[in-house]
């Protein structure tokens, strides 16, 4: 299976690069030059995708996330309720005082006893 996949990958890349020209009558140097030329055009394609698709997509998503997060921060945090399935402390965390999770945020994360600060 793995052998077939690797063969397939090799076959695909061979076919990919040799597709443009008849490679049967070329020397190795010529073949390499042809492959290099083909790779160059593929490179340009992906460079264009990176610049003209990826960058705008990231910018749009960043703006969208910025707006949503800003809006989100205007909401008050949920009231503390002592649900049995939340804030489980069967054993102390191996760090700190054993009661704060690794990415503890005093504003967003309540301890089993409740929030540490007042909502603002």
């Amino acid at each position: 299976m793995a052998a077939r996949i690797v063969n397939r990958l090799n076959w695909m890349s061979r076919r990919f690069y040799a597709a443009a020209v008849d490679s049967s009558k070329m020397t190795l140097a010529e073949k390499e030059a042809a492959e290099s030329k083909h790779a160059e055009s593929t490179m340009k394609t992906w460079k264009n995708v990176s610049i003209f698709v990826a960058v705008p997509a990231i910018l749009i998503c960043a703006y969208n996330a910025w707006v949503k997060e800003k809006e989100h921060h205007t909401h008050p945090r949920p009231e503390f309720l002592e649900y049995a399935h939340l804030r489980i402390r069967n054993k102390a965390f191996p760090w700190g005082d054993g009661n704060h999770s690794l990415f503890h945020n005093p504003h967003a994360n309540a301890l089993p006893e409740g929030y540490e600060d007042e909502d603002h």
């Binding site: 290099s36 490179m43 992906w46 995708v49 997509a57 990231i58 960043a62 949503k68």
Partner: peptide, 30 residues
């Protein structure tokens, strides 16, 4: 909210797939 920062992260990671392919073909073409 999955349509906020996680969506941005999806765009970032997919874009990095494009840039790494760009780099790969740049190496092949020297």
């Amino acid at each position: 909210n999955s349509f906020s920062v996680p969506l941005l992260n999806t765009a970032v990671l997919l874009s990095s797939g494009a840039t790494v392919t760009w780099a790969h073909h740049a190496i092949i073409s020297g």
